[in-house]
Amino acid sequence: MREPREEGYDDLLDALESDTGYYLSCPAGHGSLPPRQVCPRCGDELSEETLPATGAVVTFTEVAVPTPAFAGKTPVVLIADFGPVRLTGELLDGSDILEVGSEVVPTVASSPGGDRHVGFRLASER
């Protein structure tokens, strides 16, 4: 893990790893991801809410020319819709059956370079 920790971001990754994912919401229901001081859309105050267990894939790609942190890999990255928020991350299994609309479960992944980031597993593979 990158040192020092990054408050908010690493806290969310820890939560995703223990299946207790959350997102931030303002009173108007605008979802966002940490770290945030205020709602990015209306500037109102934020509370932590439970992240739905699965999200639906909105779009994806396999990156054939990766950054040095992913040297030797061709990561499949996707954006999944959880309702109040969307999350971007790396697919860790099932890329051969991935399609737009697939249900995914968020977790934590590591790049060969050692950084942690949001990962996903196909819900159907669990």
């Binding site: 990054e6 971001y9 991801l33 779009t59 994806f60 790609t61 990156v63 020319v65 990766p66 950054t67 040095p68 942190a69 992913f70 890999k73 990561p75 990255v77 996707l78 954006i79 999350l87 971007t88 991350g89 790396e90 992944a109 790049s111 950084d115 942690r116 980031h117 949001v118």
Partner: peptide, 28 residues
Amino acid sequence: RATEGLAMAADDLYESRAGVTFPGAYAL
């Protein structure tokens, strides 16, 4: 290195670290 430099135009925490490159983002 150039790919890494260009990827710096994206959100470091939520995009670049997850492997999203500049072409990757436009592919999405």
